[in-house]
Design a protein around this nucleic acid. Structure first.
Lengths: 323, 323
DNA sequence: GTCATCTAGGTCAGGTCATGACCTACATGG
DNA sequence: CCATGTAGGTCATGACCTGACCTAGATGAC
């Protein structure tokens, strides 16, 4: 009985960490590692079970303990490399948001970055920079730190001040009551009540500069009656220029849907090896690259601008392949 | 003193969970939530600090507690949505591995999926399916579960049995001692000692079917003297067909490097608005789409196959844009 | 079948240590 | 200067954690 008590919490955490490993741990080995008697290990396992973490035990000569899936998430105990991997993954997820977990992934990123040791933070930055910007193309991706600040202020109901440059390049300072961060299409939008204009507004996150919470809490305001995501979608399609695309793909409908992903639009089968795609996007580059990368023959019916863009691409490729 | 002790560990965990929130918590509020006296909260904070988690306290009338970045990663306490978001992020990270954190991201995914409640697992599956397969194009991405099994067996040093279909379509069963999972280029490879062939081999993870650990542990074998990643790279470039690309881009070198990412190859400036790209890739589709999506004029010098492929792409785009 | 090896759990003694109550000291912003 | 927050000392009480015994049951190797 050398170590004082008080380290029981630390021991439980260490135990949880060991049990999250894919292998099975015999009680004797756990006792040795944690420097307590096997009896105490058994009691600790019981304690974990009482806390709701289902420790599975296989009996017999090759038995051992391991943590199984339970009703609630246990605390994740990550080593340095795993933490960096998750941070990098979440940052690229923030650059290519998936609808449905948009704000949750930013919350998770905020949580992680808040406690990430600084030496690891450097590695995250370096690796995220080396990550292929994927389909971002020529557009500047959003700064993940901006997203973290926006989501934090919304969750915390703190007034938010930032500089906003609108589509025509004009830059204004805004004071807002942030309500929610929403991913629509492949962009991030902040839905907030604009205190100067006295109305609900949506702001593109990549156009927000230098955001910071003022520290002033505001009372919950009655949000617009629609679902936040729908509200943003409605505002977008009514204001921003959007291309509606109609194309025929020489690809079975199932494969097309799988390769395009759910957000691309609707895919209806024409026959066994063709289908019709209807969708919307806000840039021609995006549309063209998605279609070309399908790797199948296709025909564009709408919009005419896309056909023009494809012809420009042809010309470029022709010049590129000329000897 | 109603609740028995023993819940001190649970309380510390709950406290840690609250402190990971972006906001600041006054001690009185924490005491109320956790149903203990403020004095106990102060002691708990001290305990956390002794455990190495730096709880920051701002003094004064608007003070409060929050968890700051420390020397080690504290246990991450995630709610359901955050866990799903991380799982989805890691799965897409597994589909587009970043060199340097390759095996760590799979380890993290294994850890998370081991304890992920089943109801959440369904949501992860659905969302991951809806995720845009990005640059995967026509190729079948690796099954994340396969990666998890491979990495687990390697970490655990368990013999691994699987079916392998080689490039020419032949399917064989293998018994191996897995050493490491490595990402090279944009693919996953397993470096393992093949027990039947008595030599080190590398296996493409997407060609591995139905892998399962036999449960038999094997003693550590002397690995090949190179670094695993280098070993894989050497084997690859000596055996697999690889295209070496040389192209001139009408884009400043800095921008090109940023848009292409570090793994694309080397970029040397020619003048202020042009640069030369040298790199290697194993499929023409990949090369062509990366170049076209740069959104700039470019000229391909090598290989001739890429020029031919671009001409085919031209033909397809021409047909697609024909009325 | 038999034995080794693992989980599972009961009991007991001893003393550590967590708790709440009450206290003072100090920092901060209005 | 006062309200409100963190920071920390002290004390009595008793809950409970620990290791050292013990038996029971399951499982796989020999």
């Amino acid at each position: 009985m050398l170590g004082a008590m008080g380290d029981m919490s630390a021991r439980l955490l260490a135990l949880l960490s060991l049990l999250q490993t894919p292998r099975e741990w015999p009680g004797s080995e756990l006792a040795e590692r944690l420097e307590v008697s096997p009896r105490t290990i058994r009691r600790d396992v019981d304690r974990l079970r009482e806390l709701g973490y289902p420790v599975q035990a296989t009996m017999g000569a090759v038995g051992g303990y391991r943590l199984a899936a339970g009703a609630a998430m246990p605390p994740l105990l990550l080593d340095d490399e795993e933490a960096v991997a998750i941070a990098v993954g979440l940052r690229t997820a923030a650059a290519h948001p998936v609808e449905g977990i948009d704000e949750a992934s930013v919350r998770a990123l905020a949580k992680l970055e808040q406690v990430l040791p600084s030496r690891l933070r450097h590695r995250v930055g370096a690796l995220a920079a080396a990550t292929v910007p994927m389909l971002a193309g020529a557009e500047a991706p959003v700064d993940p730190r901006t997203l973290v600040v926006l989501a934090g202020a919304a969750a915390n109901r703190e007034r938010l001040r930032f500089a906003y440059r609108s589509g025509d390049g004009a830059e204004t300072r805004r004071l807002t009551e942030p309500y929610r961060l929403v991913a629509a299409g492949r962009r991030w939008y902040l839905l907030a009540y604009d205190n100067d204009r006295d109305d609900w507004r949506i702001f593109r996150a990549d156009r927000i500069g230098d955001p910071h919470a003022t520290g002033v809490r505001f009372p919950a305001r009655v949000p617009p009656d629609q679902d936040p995501a729908e509200f943003v979608a409605a505002k977008l399609y009514s204001s921003a220029p959007v291309y509606e695309v109609v194309a025929t793909l020489r690809l079975p409908a199932g494969q097309a849907a799988q390769r395009l992903g759910a957000a691309a639009g609707s895919v209806e089968p024409i026959d066994d090896h063709s289908c019709r795609l209807r969708g919307r996007a806000d840039t021609l580059e995006w549309l063209a690259s998605r279609l070309l990368m399908l790797g199948c023959e296709f025909e564009v019916h709408e919009p005419p601008e896309l056909r023009a863009y494809l012809r420009a691409l042809i010309a470029r490729a022709a010049r590129a392949s000329a000897s």
